[in-house]
Simulated assay, not measured.
Amino acid sequence: MKPSTLLIALVSGLASALLFAGLVLQSTSAISFALAAPIPIAIASLGWGSVAGFIASAVAGMTIYAIAMSGPSALTLFGTMALPMAVAGHLAGLARPASEPMLANGASSARRSESDLDWYPLGRVLFAIAAMAIAACLFLGWLLGYDPDAFVPTVVEALGQGGGPGMETLSETQLREFAELVIALVPFVQPALLTITLASGLYLGAAVVRVSGRLPRPKDDIPSATHLPKLALPIFGAAVAAVFLGGSIGVVAAVVVGALGAAFTLVGLASLHRRTRGRPGRGLVLFTSYAAILLLSFPIVLFMTLGLFETWRGQDGPPPRQS
C-alpha cells in the first residue's frame, strides 16, 4: 500500500470518528453530524481502494474508544456505520471482466476500459446495505441489552419532564401508553434510518470521489438501475408475518421489516424519478413527494409499495450506465 493511501485511510477514519464523537459526548448538534460519519469511509473505499476503506473503519472505531474510553461507543460506530460502509464501498468497487471472476476495486481494475467491465449491480449493493443494517441493529440491541419493558419507565420520565407541548397534560397511564408506542416503533425506525444513512453516505461519497476524478466506476443511471433482488420479496413477506408473533421473534422481524422497507422505499423513489423524466411539472412532483414524506410520513407506505412492485417486475441483470 502506498503511503499516501494509508494517510488517506487514517484521515478518513479520524474524520468519521470526529463526526460521530458529538453523539458520544451528547452534543446538541450530534445527530446531524453522526449521520454523516459514514461518508469519509465511503470516500476512502471508493477512491483509494477497499483496503483503505477497511483501515479507515478500524481507525474510526479506535479513535472513538480513545476519545470516550468506551468500548460500546467504539463498537457502535464500527459495527453500525464504519464497517458496513467499508463493505458497501468494496461491493460498489467490484468489477468483472467478461467471463472472469470479480476483481476488487483497485489500480488494475481502474485502468481497464469501462466497456470491458461489468460492475456489481446497484440493486445488490442496496440489498447488502439493508442486510448489514439488520445485522448491525441486532448486534447493537444485543450489545446494549435491549429490553422494551425495561425502557418504558425511562421514556415515561423523559416525556413527563420535557417531551414536547401537551405532554404535561397527559396522565401517567397515557404517558405510559405513548412510551410503549414509541418503544415499539424503535425496531422499525432504527434499521430504516441506518439503511437510508448508509445508502445516502455511499451516494455522497461517490459524488465527491467522482469530482476528484478517482472513481473508477462509471456513473450509474440510478433511477433505472435500482432494483432489489427478488429474494428480498419473500424475506420481507415472512418478516411482516413474523412481526405478529411478538416477543424476541417479533422484534427481530421488525428490524428486518424496517431495513428492507426503507430499501423498497428507495427503489420506489428511484422509480418516481425514472417515470417523471421529460414530463412537465417534474420538479413540482418530486418536491411535493419528498415534502409529503418529511411532513406526513405515511406517503412512505405508497413508495414502499411502488418499490415492491418494481422489484417484483424488475431484472437482476447488469445495471444501465449514464455517461
Rank of each mutant, 00 (worst) to 15 (best):
T5K: 10
T5Q: 15
L10P: 02
G13M: 04
L14P: 02
A15Y: 01
S16L: 09
L18P: 01
G22C: 03
V24M: 08
L25K: 11
S27D: 10
T28G: 10
P40W: 03
P40H: 07
P40L: 06
I41M: 05
I43W: 07
L46M: 06
W48A: 08
V51W: 08
A52G: 06
F54E: 02
A56R: 00
S57W: 04
T63G: 04
I67G: 05
P72C: 00
P72S: 00
L75Y: 01
T76V: 04
T76F: 04
L77W: 01
F78D: 04
F78S: 13
G79I: 00
M81K: 08
M81I: 12
A82K: 03
P84L: 11
V87L: 10
A88K: 03
G89K: 06
H90S: 12
H90W: 12
L91K: 02
A92R: 12
A92Y: 04
A95R: 11
A95W: 03
A95G: 15
R96D: 04
P97A: 14
A98N: 13
S99Y: 04
M102A: 11
A104F: 12
A107W: 02
S109R: 11
A110I: 05
R112G: 00
D116R: 14
Y120E: 04
P121D: 07
L122K: 05
V125E: 09
L126F: 14
L126G: 06
A128K: 10
A130Y: 01
I134R: 08
A136Q: 06
L138S: 01
L144A: 13
G145R: 05
Y146F: 14
Y146M: 01
Y146G: 01
D149Q: 13
T154H: 08
V156C: 06
G163K: 05
T169G: 14
R176C: 02
I183F: 14
A184K: 07
F188D: 02
Q190G: 02
I196C: 00
S200N: 14
G205S: 09
A207L: 15
V208G: 05
G213P: 02
R214E: 11
R214A: 10
R217W: 07
D221P: 11
P223H: 12
S224N: 12
A225H: 07
P234W: 03
P234C: 12
F236T: 00
G237D: 05
V240W: 03
A241K: 00
V243E: 03
V243I: 09
F244K: 00
S248Q: 10
G250E: 03
A253Q: 06
V255Y: 06
A259W: 01
A263R: 10
T265Y: 09
G268Y: 05
L269G: 09
S271P: 01
S271W: 09
H273I: 11
R275M: 13
R275F: 12
G281C: 15
V285T: 14
V285M: 15
L286I: 15
S289V: 15
A291S: 13
I293E: 10
F298M: 15
V301T: 13
L302F: 15
T305P: 08
L308N: 08
W312M: 14
W312A: 15
W312L: 14
R313W: 09
G314F: 02
G314Q: 08
G317H: 03
G317T: 04
P318W: 09
P318S: 07
P318C: 07
R321A: 13
R321F: 10
Q322L: 15
